[in-house]
Design a protein around this nucleic acid. Structure first.
Lengths: 106, 106
DNA sequence: TTGACATATTGAAATTAATCGATATAATTA
DNA sequence: TAATTATATCGATTAATTTCAATATGTCAA
């Protein structure tokens, strides 16, 4: 647990928004699924692709890719590569750990 | 609750250290009390003066004064002015609120 | 194996944060 | 009232972050 680095990652509106979107991926992304390759079940179990998150954010591809890897670096999200896609989902275990850090150690 | 601003304030080692020092002010500051003006009871009830925190941090007076007002701005600490001194103590209520934000809203 | 697509990385410009010394303000004391 | 002390604010410099366009890498499909 490196709290400074963690707080820096959380200090950005877009990164925080991504975390909130990923809390309920079906609600925020299912309407964007056009192809057959991904379905609602995948959104929850495997995660959401970089391109869906990028479209929703309106920011550039490179920025969103970087933001996701920052979130992954502090373990707030987990990534799964399948073929040419990378799917991101929340790491609920880490989020619970942070809540407990706040309650007990800060 | 403005989480971005809060996380920015927490994204600094010195500011986080100040919060931790203030968790147990007697332990961290009582050995620095030379004059009679402040005693151990005051440290807990009223708070710790800017100059004690500054000495312990080793940083400049202006930096520490600014850091303390940033912490106060997001309500992580409360300030009390008595004469020419300003005493700072933790705002435990706010800290509990943040812990709950993490557990429920992030 | 070539072309197209998804993602990652790099390099650069603009913005924001960290930090200090100098100075201002406010309270105390001689 | 003048000198001293504690804290706050200002202005400047350096360092870090944000964000993009361009490019590289990796994968799939024809």
């Amino acid at each position: 647990m490196k709290p400074i680095k963690l707080f820096k990652v959380l200090s950005n509106e877009t990164r925080l928004q991504i975390l909130r979107w990923l809390r309920d991926p079906v609600r925020h992304f299912s309407s964007m699924l056009i192809e057959q390759k991904t379905n609602r079940v995948d959104l929850v179990n495997i995660g959401v692709s970089v391109s869906l998150i990028q479209q929703k954010s309106g920011m550039s591809q490179s920025t969103i890719s970087q933001f996701l890897s920052m979130l992954q670096d502090v373990e707030l999200v987990k990534a799964t590569r399948i073929g040419q896609w990378t799917y991101y989902k929340r790491n609920e275990g880490k989020l619970a750990e942070i809540a407990s850090y706040f309650a007990n150690e800060l």
